[in-house]
Design a protein around this nucleic acid. Structure first.
Length: 191
DNA sequence: AGGATGATATCC
DNA sequence: GATATCATCCTC
């Protein structure tokens, strides 16, 4: 049995229990880790994210109110909000704080660390590469098998800020600078 | 530029 | 119960 990597431990819930813009910026550079099975450990550095600001944010799913679908996004921080989009792609969010705020950060792209079975640029590909699907809806990201692990942070000067992708229906909210990615990183979905 | 493909919200 | 919409991706 291989020795566990001491550097791969979950970040504390307090990391996620902050406003979504702060968490979005802080997540850049951190590792997403999924122990799919014995001998299948998948790791990627987060290089692109989007912040969703809660019920007043017309682009956020929680703007539709508290439903069975959005329950996880209204739940406590540090959990996964996973949903199926366009009938075939999963997207993963990290719920941010405080509980009940309906805020989250969408993970849009990873830089692979080691082997991943598929490309991980784009929110649907990211989930496919990491083996994440609806089974992970509401999953605690401060757990042993699927979590965010600490890695060197990205310098603020290397963070590019842009409007979010695919939310044109959201009026003025579509224009707000809530997408963040690592400047020059080749795994960003839309540089 | 268009189609895949299914859950969800929002109508009738 | 029907339908429009969708925080996308792939192929043409």
């Amino acid at each position: 049995m291989p020795a566990p990597r001491a550097d791969l431990v979950p970040l504390p819930r307090s990391f996620h229990d902050r406003d979504p813009v702060t968490v979005a910026r802080a997540l850049l550079g951190q590792r997403l880790v999924h122990r799919v099975a014995q001998g299948d450990l998948r790791i990627g550095r987060i290089v692109e994210v989007e912040a969703y600001l809660g019920p007043q944010d017309r682009a956020a799913h929680t703007s539709k109110g508290r439903t069975r679908r959005t329950e996880a996004m209204f739940g406590p921080p540090g959990h996964a909000y996973v949903y199926l989009i366009y009938g075939m792609h999963h997207c993963m969010n990290v719920v941010t704080g405080p509980e009940g705020s309906g805020t989250a950060v969408l993970l849009r792209a990873l830089e692979p660390e080691g082997e991943l079975p598929h490309a991980s640029n784009g929110p649907g590909r990211l989930c496919k590469a990491m083996g994440i699907d609806r089974r992970h809806y509401g999953h605690d990201l401060c757990s042993a098998d699927l979590f965010i692990a600490a890695a060197p942070a990205v310098d603020a000067a290397d963070i590019v800020v842009r409007p979010r992708i695919g939310v044109d229906y959201a009026g003025e909210w579509a224009l707000k600078p809530l997408r963040f990615y690592v400047a020059g990183n080749r795994f960003v979905s839309r540089p």
